[in-house]
Structure formats: structure tokens, C-alpha cells
Amino acid sequence: MPTLHFRSFLLLLAAVSIAFISILLPFYPAIFWGGVLAVIFRPLYRRLLRAVGGNSPSLAAFLTVLCITLIVILPMLFIAGALANEVAGLYTRINSGQLNLGVYYEQIVGALPPSVHGWLDSFGVGDLLSIREKLSTGALQASQFLAKQAVNIGQNTFQFVVGLGIMLYLLFFLLRDGAAIVPKLKRLIPLEDSHRHGLFQKFATVVRATVKGNIVIAATQGLLGGLMFAFLGIQGSLFWGVMMAFLSLLPAVGASLIWVPVAIYFLVTGALWEGVVLILFGVLVIGLLDNLLRPILVGKDTKLPDYVVLISTLGGLSVFGLNGFVIGPLFAALFIACWDLFPDAVAQHQQGLRDIRPTESPDSPPERLPR
């Protein structure tokens, strides 16, 4: 192909690609999660395909989508509906003054010995009136934000249903035709076969590790924490359980940001057995759950460093919203994988340059013709 024709084709390819991506952008969460679920449930699809005889990929894909709907989507919709009702009740209690974090803080500080008050004053947290107002204002603003998000979800029900339908529709074809789609995608990447295989393998591994591992661990910690809160008679146990599950996605801190302050409140206000039970449960059950389940669900070889997971998760959430808890670690893992491949790529490039040598050095004298 002549150079002008090739450049014109590249320009046309870039233009239609940008136009097509701009069309898909409004539905990128549905497309993204369709791909993620296809990667995660690919083993289930293969088992179902073998169960139906291996000759009906459409039936196996349909059964896989049905299983995903029953065990993932419907429970999440039920929890989301119950959580919206609980958030509305929480907002009502905070707005009416029935729930006041400032009062709880004042009760905690008031139960501490006088020597601790001076230590709190040195850190600027001893002004009860100021701290109480800040906590009350912060709790009210947070409840208003959550209530607003619940209202927005209710108002965008049609868009949510459309996105859910697109995700399930795309998921069906990704499961059924994934074996043919992946090789075509690999051909589009101008890299060595080993590098392309490594990047695709890293992508699938990180997606499975992030979603299968982190979400299952976070959901288990949130479930157990919410049940313990309900057992101790704490109002809004579902809401606090969801908050613990969400915070469990962040390494190092996790669910302790929720249950530790509650345990301290129990101890300093005289509810000793509640505080001791919550501390023991948080340390021995919630805290150790990550160490027990992560090697089983994720594996040691696929685990990113905790500081990378923390930074990439927070950055992904700030840039991509809720989808960022998967996109952030995914980009971080691909970044590390690409830089791991960089020395090999440079070495192969240099070897290729050495192999392409002129047969005669430019500085050598010209060959003499025979007389």
C-alpha cells in the first residue's frame, strides 16, 4: 500500500474509532462490568458447556447469565433497596436530632479521666463545643449526600434498567464468543506474542483477583460486621455493614474505621461487655478474615503490594467513581506488568538491530574491479 494511502487509512481508522468510543461512553459502566463478569465467570461457563454436551454454547451462556442474575444481581438489588430505606431513616434521625454524633463524642470525652483532657487540648480536640458542632454538621452533610444519591438512583431508574439490560446482553455474547474475540484482540496489539499473552494473562488475573477476592472478602466482612452490630442492638446495622464492606476494599485501615470508634464508645460509657465482645470479634474474626480468605481466593502470586492497592483504589474511586475500585488496581497492575516487560523489549530491540547489519562497513575501502 502506498504511503499516502496508508496514512489516509490510519487517519480514517482513528476518526471512526474516536466516534465509536464517544457513542459508547454513556454506557461504559455497563460495558466494563459486562467484560469483568465475563472474565470472572468464564470457568463457570466452561463447566456448563461441558455439562450440556459441548455442542450448545448459546445454552451454556444463557445458563451462566441466569446464574449471575440469581446469585449476584438480584441480591445486590435487594440490598440496594433496603439500604436506600435505611439511609432515608438515618437522614431523618440526624435531621431531627435523634442521632447526634456530637453528643456521642461529648459522652466519650466526659467519661475519660481528667489527665486525658489536657492531652486532648494539646492536640486541639479538647474543645467540646467546637468538636460537637463540627461532628453534627459533618454527619448532617454526609446524610444529605447519601439521601441525595438515593434519590438520584430512584430518578434514574430507567437509565439503570437500560444499562443493566446492555450489560446482560453483552455478557451473553462475551461468554459465548469469547474464545473467538480474544485472539482477534491480541492480533491488534503490535507486540511480541509472549508479551501479548503476558498482558492478557495479567489482565484476567487482576480482574479475577480484584473482584473475586476483594469483593468476596469485603462482602463477608461487611456481613459479619453488620450481624454483630445487629446483635449488639446498634441502629442502622445494614448501613454500617455496607460501610464496613466498602472500607474493607482499602488495605491497612478497612472496617476498623467503623467498629473501633463504636467499641471505644461502649467501653467509656460503661457498656463493657458490648465493647469487649466487639473488639474481640473485630480483631479475631473481621481482622483475620482477610489473612485467611485472600490466599485462597486471590493467591500470593497475584497480590499487589498493599500500598499500591491503597493508592490505586483511592485514585480510581476519585476518577472513575464506584467503578474505580476495579479500574484503579487494574491500571496499576498493567503499569507494573508493562515496566516488567520493558527490559526484555529493549533487549529484543537491540538484538534485532544487531542482526540487521550491513554486509560491508561504510568505512571500508571500495572493492576493486578485476583488470
Rank of each mutant, 00 (worst) to 15 (best):
E274C: 07
V262P: 00
M243R: 02
A332Y: 00
G328W: 00
L322H: 01
F281E: 05
L310Y: 08
L250C: 07
L297F: 04
A345R: 10
I296Y: 10
F239A: 11
R354C: 06
R294L: 10
P343K: 08
N291R: 09
W240R: 11
D306A: 14
N323L: 01
V242Q: 06
A255K: 03
V308A: 12
L317C: 10
W339C: 07
F320A: 10
M244N: 04
I286E: 00
I356P: 01
L257I: 15
I264R: 01
I234E: 13
G236C: 06
A333T: 00
K303M: 14
H349V: 08
F320Y: 14
V283P: 03
V309L: 13
N291D: 11
V260F: 15
V298T: 15
I286F: 07
D340F: 03
I296C: 05
K303P: 01
L334M: 15
Y307W: 14
D301F: 04
W339F: 14
W259I: 09
F342A: 09
F246H: 00
F342V: 05
V277H: 02
M243F: 10
A271K: 13
Q351M: 10
Q350L: 13
V277F: 12
M244V: 06
G254H: 03
V308W: 11
P305F: 07
V260A: 13
L353V: 14
K300L: 10
L314P: 02
P329E: 02
L250H: 03
W259F: 15
R294W: 03
L272W: 14
L272R: 10
L353Q: 13
V309R: 02
A263T: 02
Q350D: 12
V309D: 03
Q235I: 06
F281A: 09
G316A: 09
I356A: 09
A332P: 05
F281T: 11
Y307Q: 11
L334D: 02
F331R: 05
R294H: 07
G324N: 05
G282H: 06
G275P: 08
S237Q: 08
F335P: 00
L288R: 12
L284A: 15
S312Q: 04
